[in-house]
Design a protein around this nucleic acid. Sequence first.
DNA 1: ATAAGTATCGCAACTATGTTGCAATAATAT
DNA 2: ATATTATTGCAACATAGTTGCGATACTTAT
Lengths: 129, 129
Amino acid sequence: MKTTRNTTAKTAVTEILSKSKTALSHSEIYKLTADLCNRVTIYRILDRLVNDDIVHKIVDLDGTVKYAKCHHSHPVTIHNHAHFSCENCHEITCLESVKPSYIIPHNYKVTDINFTLSGLCPNCLNSNI
Amino acid sequence: MKTTRNTTAKTAVTEILSKSKTALSHSEIYKLTADLCNRVTIYRILDRLVNDDIVHKIVDLDGTVKYAKCHHSHPVTIHNHAHFSCENCHEITCLESVKPSYIIPHNYKVTDINFTLSGLCPNCLNSNI
DNA sequence: ATAAGTATCGCAACTATGTTGCAATAATAT
DNA sequence: ATATTATTGCAACATAGTTGCGATACTTAT
Ligand SMILES: [Zn+2]
Ligand SMILES: [Zn+2]
Ligand SMILES: [Zn+2]
Ligand SMILES: [Zn+2]
């Protein structure tokens, strides 16, 4: 079986995501690592972290992909909490407590969910843009 | 005011989306138009159709962007019906009747929603892959 | 501590997707 | 038929993500 290894780069990426209050894109993470490793390595690390259920992938309404640290105790069947994407500051945050309820359509087998709300976050709403 | 014009290319794209049972990506639409117009033109037409609320944009769990004809009578405040993305055949379909209910988080202003379910569609589920 | 096995990495090259500026074209109203 | 201007084509660019392969370095076992 393939065993997973801890490397400097992997640790750094995990740290960055742990400390971030918002979800980060590949390029944002790459910049934050500041030449620690190659661009491709970040892609591969993120893939592994997602597979290991340490990080989850979030897709914005426009197709932008971001990543956030999981806050659940390891293996979870489905990531169904909502995410909020601000049209103004473009930050994406996990809304861990917001979960959609819906009627599962007959004959469909659901194994994953993406539920993203878009609009104005509290910060930008107060700034009265 | 900017008035909108009906062109051959725009009509073709609208036709293609009207006839399709599943949502289509830019490149799929481009191939179906078969050299009718430039690649860039398709992007611009899709933008206009989305703005005019004739077509809506759907983002898959992996960030793939697709487009589907709207089935509502013109202006609608928010596209909140669910979409289903099949992991096997990669088709995305509108589930017009499935709408998520959720608790609107305090202090957030929601203006748009993306709710996509992923898994196996009825066809692929029966094929017992 | 050393060596073997292999997960991970760097690099280069590539594909896919989406955007922009500008001159040419064509839809629409008068 | 003419004027106005929305739309298009093209070329060039930007960003995102992938792949193959030889080199590197983490882990485990001796
Ligand atoms: Zn904001
Ligand atoms: Zn989250
Ligand atoms: Zn299917
Ligand atoms: Zn739809």
